[in-house]
Design a protein around this nucleic acid. Structure first.
Lengths: 208, 208
DNA sequence: GGCCGGTTCAAACGATCGTTTGAGCATACG
DNA sequence: CGTATGCTCAAACGATCGTTTGAACCGGCC
């Protein structure tokens, strides 16, 4: 007894890593626990032992990345929100840059694909999980967008945010996949991508 | 023998209709042939008899809508492409309006969800099918965008088209789901949606 | 040593999957 | 009439699914 706060260590992490890859490749239904545990090099029963069920595993795959990702987004947002000289670029950078920096991690860029899949799923349970746990993030960003775009009606603003979200989710799910030219550093490539996304989003949000 | 050109009639159509609904709701893997045939009111074996396999059925679900949809897109594009006074709005309307008009049909609006799912799938076989059969549509639109936006580099143009496509696919997959106020006619609602999407896309494509 | 909680393991559970089979039915044609 | 053809149907096929089981292994602690 007296388990350490995180009793796991290796097996849980290996499962989460393999799950991320396979969910991105084959989807939540398409990836079986047998493929998954084989790829992770652990026993089949380990998933139900450590996570309880496949559905709980899916939730943990999201939690592992989204907790840190959205915390970084909110931290970046807090630095500019409500201030006087703040621009749309600042707010959008707070949203976009932490996501692009995921590609630093092992398979972090693959996670954006998993997220894009969840986006396309109109399944209730998964959407409810994401809404309950991370809905406040989008709410805070929306509030700041509303402050910077006072000329837009609420309805108009929601439309534009929805369209921007769709564009960014789609684009970032492909990031890391496009072959970067070898004479461009990864940092430069990411910076270039960030600029594309931010400028596009600014135009989409603020056009007359 | 001597089958009529369309020997089917009812059973094939019923299967396609039920498949569209269930694929939109639960995904290609998540919807089973048993649920599907039960919803269609046909025998389980009818799918393999009429379509050969589940994968072929998926292709036919796409074909049934995309053949007509993309033909209408290209017809509308042909009316404005290459002409002198043509604007970005014209070209985008040719792409967007036929898709929104799908909501006229029984479950046409659900089909956009199916399409959004295929978009999120990075599965090779499905992407290859769509690319082989409908890649020329996006190619023609891209050519016209390039003509109207000569100041953009090829790379820059592709970026923007990719982002716009992501936004439109996402937005249209939700069209028909948002509750339309009863005092707004369906035609007015669709027209309003079209204006939102077109103006957003124009801004995203043509910003400096 | 002996026990114990945490973890791994092979094996099996029942359920459900896509697909196939072969008989039965209907309609059209010689 | 008899035969052939397109289609439907209940039933079964083997495979694979998520999950459960109970034994085996492991470290640390009395």
């Amino acid at each position: 007894m007296i388990p350490l706060v995180n009793s796991s260590g290796s097996t849980k992490e290996r499962i989460l890593g393999a799950a991320e890859v396979l969910f991105a490749q084959r989807g939540f239904d398409g990836a079986s626990l047998r493929q998954l545990t084989a790829a992770a090099g652990v026993n089949l029963a380990a998933v139900n032992y450590h996570f309880g069920s496949k559905e709980k595993l899916v939730e943990q795959v999201f939690r592992r990345r989204l907790d840190a990702l959205n915390e970084r987004r909110l931290t970046a947002l807090a630095k500019v929100a409500g201030a006087d000289g703040t621009t749309l670029e600042d707010v959008l950078a707070a949203y976009i840059r932490p996501a692009l920096e995921l590609s630093h991690d092992d398979n972090g860029s693959l996670f954006m694909r998993v997220l894009a899949r969840a986006f396309a799923e109109h399944d209730d349970s998964l959407r409810q999980f994401l809404s309950e746990n991370y809905g406040h993030v989008m709410r805070q960003f929306t509030a700041e967008f509303a402050r910077l775009l006072p000329q837009l009606s609420k309805q108009e603003l929601y439309w534009r945010i929805d369209l921007v979200t769709g564009a960014l989710t789609h684009a970032m799910s492909g990031f890391g996949m496009i072959q970067r030219k070898s004479d461009v550093s990864e940092h430069a490539h990411r910076e270039q991508t960030a600029q594309h996304l931010i400028r596009f989003a600014v135009a989409g949000l603020s056009h007359p």
